[in-house]
Nucleic acid binder design. Structure first.
Lengths: 357, 357
DNA sequence: TCCCTGCGGGAAAGGGCTTTCTCTGCGGTA
DNA sequence: TACCGCAGAGAAAGCCCTTTCCCGCAGGGA
């Protein structure tokens, strides 16, 4: 690899001058030398060693991002928002997938800190795990103590900047919608119970059902991976245990798609025989058939906010932005079937209308 | 930020010793000093500066990857394959999205080279653009001249290692399937015409139609973005121009999903009134309704192969692996409708069967 | 007793760049 | 003519590590 001094030697100048030309320094350099340096750069196909540069200018500009999995549409959307702001401000993003492994999350915090990132964004659910939470907070505190900025998306554990989707209200909206349609026998296809996102959404759902004089017993909940196959499998288990179910709430859209697959395989018509509700409103939700009724979270906006928070230096730090959830009515949730409606004792209401309720 | 000499000072040892303890060097250090160093590390929350490390050990280990967009399922799958091998070998991946912008691709080659990556993988279609191709090849050659390894996935332009999905045969399989089902009026929803992937798939398709005594006129092709909305829009244009179409081939699954959306919006039944074929077989293909008939490419495997190629140093370099395309019959392709079949003059054949033909 | 060996540790030389500081030489003013 | 100031270039001091080289010392063999 050609180095800066190779370039300088070839151009017959000092490395200092070469550096100034290449970086467009404010210090003036005569046109003649400039030309010579540029020519040498081209001839040698010189590319500066990024590590040396980053080491020399102790000026940190990249931003680290830790997500569960960028290829999961939920995080893909959030990342799109993060990226948008970062690009506007000329920041490079380093994105790491933790695959929901707390240890890996801890490792990545160190890794990114080692890479001298200016800020750190953790996106994705926190864990019900005190030991882990404490460790993570220690590491984040250490990082912040050296001037790093931290923001989290959808995690309670951190005491600084945060963007919080209103998972609980989202769950509540889902529950209220289904109750309004007359459903009482509602099953839940949930993500891992160790995730706070799961429990938050569940809590809202439970509250809605309770308000309607119904309830949500544990036997009507199945916990599985937060993805398509997890949803398919959990739905199968749910149906096996309780064939009377008239509605299923999936705690994210990927699981809902898995649920639809299982229902289709079993020949159950959605929403005529059984209703399905998703959560997140990821892009594919409108393209499945029937189109998925779901709770929308402003995913891209969550990314935008988080990145803005973290790059807005100087602002007093503990800022928490709660972003609202919103019900999106499409075609997978309908009134409780006639055969069971009599026992439900509540009139179904119109299915389409405003998207918020 | 604490530095190594801070740690050394606190532990009362030299930086050399501290470094040896921290990196688990093969050089022996007495337990006592080791303890002291480790204690100092913990107290100071020391994390080594990655740039300094990377600079000091001139040993390159990360691998650079340039894709069009990781959040596109096509690339997400490929990346999964890349990641798998990289993780096994303890390599870090630096993934960059070019968003199909050739200039950005060029920039990323430089960026990654600057970051001293051990190898570079370019995934995603090449461009019909000679000037760009020449520039890219120059940059890649310069990189290879300094010992870097390069592999491409699905690009013709590079003369070294390559993993090539058999796009042409895939197009051919799609065409043959549709002809076999009696279709003659076939429209194509294509990606940008500047992409070689588009033209390769189109060429195979055209060949199949020609063999069947049919043809594929330009007026039955619409070029659009390689995504869901592009597919929806191109389908609409196609239908407006030629309402007689009995089948639509989308040149990737995202576009096919867009096509299905447009057809649904227009009340056209798939496959009873019109058939749809996709390409790639991304995971969501089986979850749309009707499930998408498509041409499968071994996406994860493509990633695995490419990474293996590039990390298998010492092997003589120009290796090209062609991976086969395979037809996957699901529910969106059916026999040509009765009303038009008479004019088509060919008996439809069974729709389900072996997945290859 | 002397020498050699090997072990544990430190000094110091990079690694490639940025940036401050210093120096030279020129034009302009008194 | 003497002096000042400044533009433009280079020397050199970091940035923070890793690793080679070297040194001192203790133990073992002759």
């Amino acid at each position: 690899m050609a180095t800066l001094s190779d370039v300088a030697r070839r151009a017959g100048v000092s490395p200092a001058t070469a550096s100034r030309v290449i970086n467009g320094s404010s210090k003036p350099v005569t046109d003649e030398l400039r030309e010579r340096v540029l020519a040498a750069v081209a001839e040698l196909q010189y590319v500066p060693n990024a590590h040396a540069q980053l080491l020399a200018r102790s000026h940190r500009s990249a931003v680290g991002v830790i997500v569960h999995d960028v290829s999961d549409p939920y995080f893909a959307e959030i990342t799109r928002g993060l990226q948008r702001v970062a690009t506007d401000q000329g920041r490079l993003l380093m994105i790491c997938n933790s695959y929901r492994d707390p240890d890996r999350e801890l490792e990545y915090v160190e890794l990114l800190r080692g890479h001298q990132v200016a800020a750190l964004i953790l996106a994705g659910s926190g864990y019900h795990d005190e030991a882990f939470t404490r460790q993570l907070n220690e590491k984040l505190a250490a990082y912040e103590a050296t001037g790093g900025r931290v923001a989290v998306i959808g995690r309670h554990e951190h005491s600084g900047d945060a963007v919080m989707p209103d998972n609980r209200t989202g769950g509540y909206l889902a529950g209220r919608e289904l109750c309004g349609l007359g459903h009482r026998a509602i099953g839940v296809v949930a993500g891992p119970r160790i995730l706070t996102t799961t429990t938050d959404r569940l809590a809202g759902l439970r509250q809605a059902l309770t308000e309607q004089g119904s309830e949500l017993p544990e036997r009507r909940i199945r916990y599985a991976e937060f993805d398509r196959d997890g949803g398919a499998e959990a739905t199968a288990r749910l149906l096996d245990a309780d064939p009377e179910l008239t509605a299923i709430v999936a705690l994210n859209d990927s699981m809902a798609i898995g649920a639809l697959a299982t229902l289709r395989a079993r020949g159950l018509a959605v929403p005529q025989q059984i209703s399905v509700l998703g959560f997140d409103d990821m892009p594919i939700a409108r393209d499945v058939t029937p189109a998925l009724t779901t709770v929308r979270l402003p995913l891209v906006d969550m990314g935008v906010r988080a990145m803005s928070l973290v790059l807005d230096v100087g602002a007093p730090t503990p800022r928490v932005e709660v972003l609202p959830a919103e019900l999106v009515r499409r075609d997978t949730a309908g009134p409780v079937p006639l055969s069971t409606r009599a026992t439900a004792g509540s009139a179904p209401r119109a299915r389409r209308g405003d998207s918020t309720s």
